[in-house]
Simulated scan of single mutants.
Amino acid sequence: MTPHAGTDAGTGGEQMMRVRTTASAVSKGTETLVHTGRVPPRVAELMAAPHQLGDFPHPVSYGYLAVGIVDEGPAAWIGTRVFGLLPHHSHHLVVPDDVHPIPEGISDHRALLAGAAETGLNILWQSPPHYGDRVAIIGGGMIGAATALLASHLPLERLEIIETNPDRRALLTSLGLTALAPEDAGDDCDIVIHTSGSEAGLARALEIAGDDGTVVEASWYGDTEPQVALGADFHARRLSIVASQVGQVPAGHRARRTRSERLGAALSALHDDRFDALITGTSGWQDLPWLMDELSSDTALATATLCHVLDYEEGS
């Protein structure tokens, strides 16, 4: 998931309020790139999180998936559970425009997936699937899985999520999704959404897109420069590759939807109980340094993680 660069700021004169964090989550793809100092200098300002402290590469206080309770500020907000694009801190001083109330019936942990759902919604708005389309999503991480859950409500002829990890395929299948190994993916797709962050995934996306089809590139590679196989399918079959980045509402919706409205729609989408399965681990907030080292390495935890939650409640 890429950070929400340029997110709407609060308007002047709004009263400050304090949010006591109850939980935050690690967006593994982007946060491990930040943790290992792999943000390209030329886009450092664009890729800054809305409320980060410090500058890339280090030291920087980062993160953009947090929930909490307003415990100081305007009387109308006291006790309200909120989601915000906020770093891994125990408390935050914000204005009302910085946060969004969490709907009833959605737990604090599930609300942390609002960022993933918002990114998935933005992807689907980028090149909207039509009735009866064949859609593939390559990469079953947090963003790919969230996008697939959203897309599963659309009247598509075919929706496949392509994932190399058999354990992830089993998890996705248990959610009622069609999850396949790359070699088993259907071809002649109208839209292929790429979220795996790998050269192999992007190459496979170009292979399975149908003639005149579209590949939506939603991966962020940091300072990695992937080789893109443009010599085979791209020109000969008139394919399109379009970028999706959640910092802005896509052009097709930008005149009619604000980022706040998009986030509200994402939070509403979390009424789907299947999102709980994307939370694959929980730790106390004190484990963040160790957790980031683990997720940035080739470890079993890194392989298994979709969304890892940090608890801030007493005793966690």
Rank of each mutant, 00 (worst) to 15 (best):
T195V: 12
S240E: 12
A48P: 04
A181F: 00
A9R: 13
E160F: 05
A117R: 08
V228R: 03
E72M: 10
E207P: 07
S260N: 11
Q52M: 10
P57T: 03
A266N: 09
N165V: 02
E14D: 08
P129V: 02
P41W: 02
V246L: 01
A179G: 07
S198Y: 06
G84T: 09
T195L: 10
L310S: 10
A205L: 02
R38K: 15
G247D: 03
G10N: 11
L301H: 03
G144K: 07
S260L: 09
D8M: 11
G120Q: 07
G29P: 04
A48K: 15
K28Y: 01
S61P: 00
K28M: 11
Q52F: 03
A116R: 04
E294H: 05
L202E: 11
I279Y: 12
G252R: 05
H91P: 06
T22C: 06
G73I: 10
P50G: 11
I78T: 12
V34M: 15
L180I: 06
H109A: 13
L112C: 10
D71L: 05
S316E: 14
A111N: 09
G176A: 01
E183R: 12
L175A: 07
N122T: 13
P40W: 01
P128I: 04
E160N: 08
L172V: 05
L65R: 15
G201R: 12
L263R: 14
A232S: 14
A179V: 03
G79C: 02
Q286D: 14
V19Q: 08
I138K: 09
Q245C: 02
D223G: 01
D287N: 10
S90M: 05
A229V: 00
Q286V: 10
A151Y: 09
G63P: 07
G132K: 10
W220I: 01
R262W: 03
A76D: 11
G201C: 09
Q286N: 11
T305Y: 03
T164P: 09
P103M: 02
E118K: 13
A236G: 01
H88T: 02
G139W: 03
L177M: 08
G140E: 05
T21A: 14
A44E: 00
E14F: 02
P87F: 07
A255I: 02
G115E: 12
R259M: 14
L171W: 02
V67D: 12
S61I: 08
H235R: 01
A266W: 00
A5M: 03
V39F: 03
G73T: 06
Q245M: 11
E118I: 00
R259L: 04
H109N: 12
A116E: 12
G144S: 06
I161W: 06
T224E: 14
E157F: 02
S316P: 00
H89I: 00
F275N: 10
I106K: 07
A44K: 04
V249Y: 07
R20T: 14
P155D: 15
I162G: 13
D187I: 03
T195M: 08
R168H: 08
G120R: 05
A114Q: 04
A200S: 15
T303G: 15
L154A: 12
T2N: 14
S27L: 05
L112G: 14
L295E: 07
